[in-house]
Nucleic acid binder design. Structure first.
Lengths: 162, 162
DNA sequence: GCACGATCTTGACTAGGTCAAAAGGTGGAT
DNA sequence: ATCCACCTTTTGACCTAGTCAAGATCGTGC
């Protein structure tokens, strides 16, 4: 199994180290996972890997187009192995669930604006925001926050000042 | 002039304080500005305003749909007063220049995925990534970074350790 | 089996943003 | 006019996600 991953890396000129294999495996296993998710999964696989090695591995794979990085508003960056098929994303505003959806037109950029202002277009990134079926049903229950906002500390009183 | 802004705020049930007027004016003056841009402009207008007052004002106006917030990948959040017209954005990968482009279909969500997976769709957010005319022409010159990456410190050696 | 470049670990540091306490304003009721 | 309750702003601590740099370690070709 890891032979397959090794050859993916090698074919793009990336040394298949244990850390990189673990990171790639993690991204495959957990599509749309954050760097932290990936780090945890990779650690589960090989015992230990540094914060920085995860970021380095993700960055080199993004650069070589083995994985894709998306950054939905209000969320840390997320990674996936589906690349080159120009698909888009459906994200739940309530719980953050992210799903892939196929592009209707098929090749990048899959759509063009009415007026491109002279820009050389490379890509149209489309995010469909909505509410997933579970959250629609359970609208009376307390909802989870959509994502953990960047600076969010723990909830509740943190420290009592005089 | 500020009468117009006042009535906008009042019509949405927001007290038109000096700070909020300054923030709204700043967003109108500098579309696609970051919170920091807005703070600087507001300060130029009324002398002084706290960091937090800017974030609070922006948040309440976003919530009341007076302004819109976009968060392009790799960039801090940006704000604009064009709301409700379902327009999209064209962003230069080289210099970060952001332009509005009209939506071809006209009403939100302006497009629908092939399969919405049962999600209740609210909005399709579309970002066209490309290279602006200036950057295309000057491709040999040193380009500015697209944006300052989140954790980016100054360039060059920061401190020499033993 | 060594040298050298590539990669990883460690750890400092940053931007952008959030939370909370307390001070300051504002407006309605008296 | 004044008081009070509530809203807003200031102040400042703090957090997350991420970057940079130095040095140790690994892996590969010779």
């Amino acid at each position: 199994m890891s032979d397959r991953l090794q050859s993916i890396l090698r074919s793009r000129g990336i040394q298949p180290t244990a850390q990189r294999l673990a990171v790639l495996h993690a991204v495959e296993t957990c599509p749309h996972g954050t760097a932290e998710d990936v780090a945890n999964l990779a650690r589960a696989g090989i015992g230990t890997i540094s914060h920085q090695a995860v970021y380095d591995a993700l960055a080199v794979m993004v650069e070589r187009r083995i994985i894709r990085r998306i950054e939905p508003a209000g969320s840390p960056a997320r990674y996936e192995t589906r690349v080159g098929d120009n698909h888009h994303h459906l994200i739940c505003r309530a719980c953050g669930k992210t799903e892939d959806v196929d592009c209707a037109t098929g090749h990048a950029p899959c759509l063009s604006p009415l007026d491109s202002r002279g820009f050389a277009l490379e890509e149209a990134e489309v995010i469909f925001w909505g509410t997933c079926p579970e959250c629609s049903r359970g609208s009376k229950r307390t909802r989870k926050r959509r994502t953990s906002p960047r600076g969010a500390a723990h909830r509740g009183p943190r420290r009592v000042r005089t």
